[in-house]
Design a protein around this nucleic acid. Structure first.
Lengths: 337, 337
DNA sequence: GTGAAAGCGCTAACAA
DNA sequence: TTGTTAGCGCTTTCAC
């Protein structure tokens, strides 16, 4: 079996307290003693048992991250950023996937498995404002995304409405007037789709452009295939448009593919802009214009805020709301030379 | 503070053993007693402390996954598959990133943080055969990828040489003779790049096509930008080619973009095939032909094999090698209508 | 069918 | 400067 502090102490000829002192780099240990202990640790291949340590300390050094699916590039890149941010704080990340399914999200929140972590970052997709009560959990929880606002926990998110409005204004500034939207969710008000659509309509209104329901394509999940399907339906109906605002990059890529297949030129015939600033948006042909929603900042803020709750540093604070800075990234797909 | 078994026992008016019996669904508990205990659990919001439980049981139910970067789609999709496979076995996954950096990989193997898990799935990129000794760790470890073979641990990988050979043969069957390679690693023999290149040369030899070093592009990391750069260099040198075998899909996408920019038609002028079968390969324009290396099978096998080691079910087995089934997925980028 | 008590490996208060 | 010891919350053996 694995060596314990007792084994180390015995081999080194000291007490376990001394071993502990060495491990924790207590200042007052005689160099010779320290050397003996280190030698014993080396010899036995001793590794502290983290279960025991955390039972004692009440902390595990693990934070949970609950996301829909790593297959969705946005969440892969978010998870990447969260792991890196956590690492800077000496924390390690346990990742659970919910598939964006409401029932699984609710279950994940109550799953004892997640209790291994000191706290949880939660990015729901299926849950909505009606489920806000489910966020009342007994462990530190930080909410991500835009499904739920005004909940009982800290919330880190992006400026969806503002950013979508700026993106739309960019298209309008390019002289576009018939701007199609891909990826709306029927009847949604809160949520990425609803908020981004709101930003779009705000921009139209501010420019005196009439909102045309025929230009709004509804999809369920934001997969590439849905962007493609939505675009095929636009083309089939014969509705005229000179720009596309895809509510995320993945949809944009699917839509671009269909536009190109049909012989449309991007951006000459149709300008396209996405949302998320995925790595791949930079390398498509044409390179995809998009909105950088501040993903890295979101990850860093989320980890920092969660740790403030875990350590109690933010004990007396009411639930807080953090908004990351966004920027519109103009690339080839929306910029006439 | 959080409730413990003692609190539950007190509220229910029973002993902690009875509480434990209820939690573990021991058969011989009187229904009325059981109900009382469940009520107390509910009332107190009791959740078992997993640190204590795992200290006792020696198992955490956590498996570690060490990968280069989730930003690389291949690893995002692999991680997705691993989490899903682990979930089927009631395990949860702790993800660490190494950036593919050798030093960080070595450190991750010895990091006590990873010791929280019962065992580890390790996918190195920077380490090589010379580092095989570092795999001698004191916890269950399963190796993924193709950087190290014949190590002291179970290894789950793909049939790189065979699959690359089949992919190349597919291009040859389409009548291509000047097949460029994108993504080779200078001097590498073991590793995805080396093995896939070997499959390529095998296919050429079998068809009596001469190997032309001018057709091999070397890159460091397999990012899209490198595929693009490699292709630009090909075009600059003026070397003739009628097909491209990109050693992974991401490189293929970068290369395709440059080919299209330069006015080449895919697949008429240049056929392109990648490797990995990423989700996105299905939705590019043209849809990318690729090799499905059996990622899901790899994830499932890896989790199963690791659990066999953790539980001791495979205690007496020597290190084993598992190869997933692969298949060439022919799409538009390599198939003349 | 239920209770009492030991101990998993570690940390830290207290003693020496 | 180092040693002794009491738990952290849980499971489980052994009594009752």
């Amino acid at each position: 079996m694995a060596a314990t502090v007792h084994d180390v102490a015995r081999v080194a000829g000291v007490s376990i307290k001394t071993v502990s002192n060495v491990i924790h780099e207590f200042p007052h240990v005689r160099p010779t003693t320290r050397a003996k202990v280190l030698a014993a640790i080396e010899q036995l291949g001793y590794r502290p048992n983290l279960s025991a340590r955390s039972l004692r300390s009440g902390r595990t050094g693990v934070i949970g991250l609950i996301v829909p699916e790593l297959r969705l590039s946005y969440f892969a890149e978010l998870t990447d950023a969260v792991i890196k941010a956590a690492e800077r704080h000496g924390q390690v990340v346990l990742v659970e996937q919910t598939n964006g399914d409401r029932a699984r999200e609710l279950e994940a929140l109550n799953s004892p498995r997640v209790k291994f972590s000191d706290g949880v970052l939660f990015s729901p997709l299926g849950m909505g404002v009606d489920d806000v009560a489910a966020l009342n959990v007994s462990y530190p929880l930080v909410l991500l995304g835009e499904r739920i606002f005004g909940g009982p926990v800290d919330h880190v998110t992006m400026q969806n409405v503002q950013a979508a409005r700026t993106a739309t204004e960019h298209l309008i500034a390019q002289g576009r007037r018939r701007i199609a939207v891909v990826g709306a969710h029927e009847g949604e008000v809160i949520g990425s789709a609803g908020l981004r659509l709101a930003g779009y309509t705000e921009a139209l209104a501010a420019s005196g452009i009439e909102f045309d329901p025929a230009l709004i394509a509804y999809t369920t999940l934001w997969h590439r295939a849905n962007g493609a399907t939505a675009m095929r339906e636009f083309l089939a109906t014969g509705v005229q448009f000179d720009a596309v605002f895809a509510l995320n990059d993945t949809l944009a890529l699917g839509a671009m593919r269909v536009l190109q297949e049909s012989g449309m030129r991007i951006p000459e015939d149709v300008a396209v802009i996405g949302f998320d600033d995925l790595d791949e948006a930079r390398y498509t042909l044409p390179a995809l214009s998009t909105v950088d929603p501040g993903r890295t900042e979101i990850a860093e803020t989320a980890v920092r805020v969660l740790l403030e709750r875990i350590t109690g540093a933010a004990k007396d604070q009411p639930p807080r709301e953090f908004l990351a800075e966004y920027s519109v990234v103009v690339r080839e797909s929306s910029a006439l030379a």
